[in-house]
Design a protein around this nucleic acid. Structure first.
Lengths: 192, 192
DNA sequence: CGAGTACACCTAACGGTGTTAGGCAAACCG
DNA sequence: CGGTTTGCCTAACACCGTTAGGTGTACTCG
């Protein structure tokens, strides 16, 4: 049975994390201070250090949480049998995930926070996501390393353009199906 | 004839800008302070305000300078007559430009600096770049708005992946020709 | 050529940041 | 109940972008 105290500690940790996410969504990924987070949870800034060793550690926990969310979302996704439908669905899922929470997207996929590098533990989660993606692509007949790299470039490119240049519209998300068709036409035509 | 003093002022301005670029390349786009820039040019931080109204104004001048460099580089590019060769060349030129100076790339194409939005004057330069690109794509037979958007997503996606995940390698730059072929096969097959 | 002005640069300081040190009271454990 | 651990505090540090105000030098003009 987990310690009562440890559980309470974990809950406060999560409360801090939630406050950080809220502020990041309001003011941008790097537009918040520890003092603001502390105020949000009814503390003073130095008290946060009982829960996170630094501001970077908060970013790291956010990185892990974001990766876990993406993992959960792709796992929960319906899986059409047809390869084309499958890849369309996974691409749409990914771009939607990015557009739904731009700061989360920036944290996970752009290197936007000045000194931040995810810890090995958090990065392992992100690699797990890529691993699942590789599985889905293989199921659709796409196996080569180069094809996977091209896929990630294509899909993150769509997401980046959408988030950076038309955050409230659908100018690039509307292109997802078309982009997938283009990709498949090329990759399935030359299978190896 | 321009004022001696005005010329000297302009030279100092450029000196500050060069120092900022140098520091940005060393420590990351947002990893430098005004005090460091000032030291680099032999001043104290407040003196910089005689040349730029704020740190953001420095970023804005850097943005304009980066856009001008991209513009100059694409203008100076050899222009193969064959559409496929042309697009391959322009794509390679763009990705090389991005990879050659990651902070510059982040400043121009990712929204990485917390509060920074380019001024209308600087942004006009960036739009000029896009305008030239539209011209090149049209010369290769690609005219639709959607196709241009897909192109930018594809090319910036390759650049982002390269810069973010393999900054010293060629994992994604090696895919540029292949990506262009894929794009053209799809877009020229369905011209409108 | 001397007086007056504009300019380049300075120091001091303000409110903000992440972070450390040290203290005090409540909660837990034997 | 006594001792330890925990949770949170205040005070302070070094650094940040930025503003105010002062000083000497370089230029302009009568």
């Amino acid at each position: 049975m987990t310690d009562r105290r440890a559980r309470r500690h974990e809950a406060t940790r999560q409360e801090i994390l939630d406050a950080a996410w809220r502020l990041a969504r309001e003011r941008g990924l790097t537009g918040w201070s520890l003092r603001e987070v502390a105020t949000e949870v009814g503390m003073r800034a130095p008290s946060l250090y009982g829960y996170f060793g630094s501001k970077e550690a908060i970013y790291d926990a956010m990185f892990a949480e974001g990766s876990a969310q993406l993992l959960a979302r792709t796992d929960a996704m319906p899986r059409p049998a047809d390869p084309v439908d499958l890849l369309r669905a996974v691409a749409r899922e990914f771009v939607d995930f990015c557009v739904a929470d731009p700061p989360r997207y920036q944290l996970l996929f752009l290197r936007v926070v000045p000194g931040f590098v995810p810890s090995p533990a958090s990065y392992a989660l992100a690699e797990e996501v890529l691993e699942r993606l590789r599985g889905v692509l293989a199921a659709a007949g796409v196996t080569s390393e180069r094809a996977v790299d091209l896929w990630t470039a294509l899909v993150t490119g769509l997401a980046t353009q959408q988030v950076s240049n038309d955050p409230d519209g659908t100018r690039w998300t509307d292109l997802v199906d078309h982009a997938v068709d283009m990709f498949l036409a090329s990759e399935l035509a030359t299978p190896r």
